[in-house]
């Protein structure tokens, strides 16, 4: 009888440990997928902005249709629902600087990250209407767009190193 109890306790313990181990690796996997997905979104931002920036700098010949398409992509990207991309515990202190530069401040109670995200969407929408209206209009919209990127990166991304 005593042996039986020990066995049951042992099995229970193993079961609990096993479950938590599985669920932890499951969380890790989901978290890592979210980090990967949001970094992919950042790459898509940069890829589209690079065409607009190339035109603004004069490195690429201005083409209204191509500029509009890139700016349209940018605006669409900025409107994606990102709620699953930023799970709790996916900051650089938890996962390490080599995995993510997202600072814990993003999830702090006084975080203003949503305001910054809104600023970015507004700047991207403004670019969407400006990009096809000539090179000067495109150039004018680049400043606010860059500033909107900085509005998140100033406070919520680990400084360069």
């Amino acid at each position: 009888m005593k042996y039986g109890l020990t066995l049951v306790a042992g099995l229970l313990t193993a079961g609990v440990l096993g479950t938590s181990a599985i669920s932890e690796s499951h969380v890790d996997k989901a978290t890592m997928a979210a980090v990967k997905a949001r970094q992919a979104q950042m790459s898509l931002y940069a890829f589209n902005i690079s065409l607009l920036g190339g035109m603004a700098k004069g490195e690429v010949e201005y083409d209204a249709a191509a500029a509009s398409a890139a700016a349209g992509n940018l605006a669409a990207l900025s409107k994606l629902d990102q709620s699953r991309l930023w799970p709790q515990g996916s900051d650089n202190e938890t996962l390490g600087d080599d995995v993510t530069e997202a600072l814990p401040a993003i999830w702090a109670a006084d975080s203003k990250i949503m305001d910054s995200a809104m600023t970015m969407t507004e700047a991207a929408v403004a670019m969407e209407s400006a990009a096809g209206e000539g090179l000067d209009a495109l150039r004018g919209a680049m400043g606010p767009l860059g500033k909107s990127c900085g509005s998140c990166h100033e406070t919520y991304r680990k400084a360069d190193d």
């Binding site: 990127c149 900085g150 400084a159 360069d160």
Partner: peptide
Amino acid sequence: YDSAGGQMT
């Protein structure tokens, strides 16, 4: 087409 961060913004 990464952007400035931290105090540099």
